[in-house]
């Protein structure tokens, strides 16, 4: 029943919060208008994406947020150090790794985290073989990188989405 009124509950809540932040107010009028918009847009979104997001461990999202935030800060400082060298010579390299994560939302979040971190960029995902091509800015040890992504992010995302 609730699915018919609200096809994408998570999307609708995020949209409502975004609307309230933009309006700089949590008055009743803004909440009503924002809810109407959020429900309308989530109906529109339901037409072109049918998979619904199921979150199993909501508290893990906060953990993921902090882990990603710390990595972004560390990576920014490391890359700034390389770029302010008189002659920057980073060892850029492609790595290919196999993922156990198959949930589309989880993959999208992993892709955004990896690309938003300045030291690494998600290039291409191969659905048939479930491998991903990643470009690393300054590669020292390929195995270590793969292990880091696997232990730090993939396990968390697996716990949240699968």
């Amino acid at each position: 029943m609730i699915r018919r009124i609200l096809p994408h509950p998570v999307l609708a809540v995020v949209l409502l919060l975004f609307w309230l932040v933009l309006q700089q107010s949590a008055g009743l009028g803004h909440i009503l208008l924002g809810s109407a918009l959020a429900i309308g847009v989530s109906h529109l979104a339901a037409r072109f994406s049918t998979d619904d997001v199921k979150i199993r461990n909501p508290h893990k999202i906060i953990q993921l947020f902090f882990v990603a935030g710390l990595d972004v800060i560390r990576s920014n400082l490391a890359i700034m150090a390389v770029l302010f060298n008189p002659r920057p010579s980073p060892a850029g390299a492609f790595i290919e790794m196999k993922l156990n994560l198959t949930n589309p939302t989880g993959l999208a979040i992993l892709a955004i985290i990896i690309t938003a971190t300045p030291g690494s960029a998600w290039l291409e995902y191969d659905k048939e073989r479930s491998t991903v091509l990643i470009h690393v800015f300054d590669l020292l040890d390929e195995e270590e990188w793969i292990e880091t992504i696997r232990n730090r992010y993939e396990t968390l995302l697996l716990e949240i989405f699968q």
Binding site: N76, L83, T115, A116, T117, P118, G119, H135, F137
Partner: peptide, 8 residues
Amino acid sequence: HAPTMGTS
């Protein structure tokens, strides 16, 4: 990798 420094 460069533009993401400004955005993050």
